[in-house]
Nucleic acid binder design. Structure first.
Length: 321
DNA sequence: AAACACACCAACCGCTGCCAC
DNA sequence: GGTGGCAGCGGTTGGTGTGTT
């Protein structure tokens, strides 16, 4: 072995931990345009401070457009159990039987509850009881897409209880921010450009990678990749704003959130040439982020449009960092 | 209401297998 | 056949949410 393999990347030079929205967008945009022939070279080419491995993992497990999201059905779970009996911990081989599912996902499902069910079935007669408990996860809310921790517990919580959780109400993946049928949401017409912005980054609504992918592919919406450094700097700036939230405990300040959302939207629209927010709100960009300027009035539609700070998949992680 | 325990899952780490030279 | 580089795989961990006491 000798010195062993050289590390795949310089750990001190790459970013680690949860992926930010802008990183996701960068990765998606790059792969949509150039594919992923060389994972090692990809981060540099895409302007990402990430290890190629990390990029690959993020794409395969999370950003791929063909991913099937949502809970596993009872049939899928049964199949996993059968395949595991035949193949063992060959997660990638098992995953081959589930188009749109990742090996990591299947591994997690197995380790979290299928293993228990299987061992119970194997060892005693309580298999059915446990099965009825664990498989409850497959019966609820299969419509939502990736929400990170947002869907934890939703699987097991009754609807009546679910509604009590304000975070769940505001960020639930099954409720689009511009779904006019959403209970409690102020019904306002959403401009097309706002929909683009919203679905592109889902800044004020549920995080849906599929939406982002669709928007990236839309004709007429050109996302600068290599050339427009400002654009990415701006997105990177968003990340830092998010990270800074815990510093100012801003999640508890709805006014702050609304203002920040507005600022973000103004800026992004300006950058993308949509310029839909108008001149009056753009000056907010120059103001202090924490204190809402007096002349900035949050309209009801702002609240409806930005019901909550974005719930990126990694939100639970970044909040503590 | 607080403290604790448990569940969950995204992401990391290190190993393996394959391929080119 | 040996070596190095790569993608892929599987085990594990860390952080957060949820349930229970």
């Amino acid at each position: 072995m000798g010195k062993g393999r050289a590390p795949c990347c310089d750990k001190s030079q790459v970013k680690r931990g949860p992926w930010s929205p802008s990183e996701d967008l960068r990765l998606i945009t790059f792969i949509q345009k150039h594919g992923h022939d060389n994972w090692r070279a990809l981060p540099k080419q895409a302007g990402l401070l990430r290890c190629g491995k990390s990029c690959r993992l993020r794409w395969i497990n999370y950003l791929r457009p063909d991913l099937k999201r949502g809970n596993f059905t009872k049939e899928e779970e049964e199949t996993i159990i059968k395949l595991h009996e035949a193949l063992g911990n060959k997660w990638s081989k098992i995953a081959n039987h589930f188009p749109g599912r990742t090996d990591n996902e299947i591994k997690n499902v197995w380790n979290t509850h299928l293993k228990k069910r299987w061992s119970f079935k194997d060892g005693n007669s309580h298999g059915e009881e446990l099965s009825s408990i664990t498989s409850s996860s497959s019966s609820s809310s299969t419509s939502f897409t990736t929400c990170g921790k947002q869907n934890i517990g939703v699987e097991k919580v009754e609807d009546s209880q679910r509604a009590k959780d304000p975070r769940e109400e505001q960020t639930s993946c099954s409720v689009s921010s511009y779904d006019s049928n959403s209970s409690g949401a102020v019904e306002v017409p959403i401009r097309p450009e706002e929909q683009i912005m919203d679905s592109l980054l889902q800044y004020g609504g549920p995080y849906d990678v599929n939406n982002m992918l669709q928007e990236v592919n839309k004709p007429g919406l050109e996302i600068p990749l290599e050339a427009d450094v400002d654009f990415w700097n701006m997105l990177d700036g968003l990340d830092s704003v998010q990270v800074g939230h815990d510093q100012v405990d801003a999640r508890e300040s709805s006014n702050f959130i609304q203002v920040e959302n507005k600022k973000w939207l103004c800026y992004l629209e300006t950058e993308l040439g949509l310029d839909a927010m108008g001149e009056e709100n753009r000056e907010v960009l120059t103001k202090d982020a924490v204190v809402a300027p007096e002349n900035f009035q949050c309209q009801p539609e702002d609240v409806a449009y930005f019901p909550m700070w974005p719930s990126w998949p990694h939100d639970h992680n970044s909040a503590s960092k």
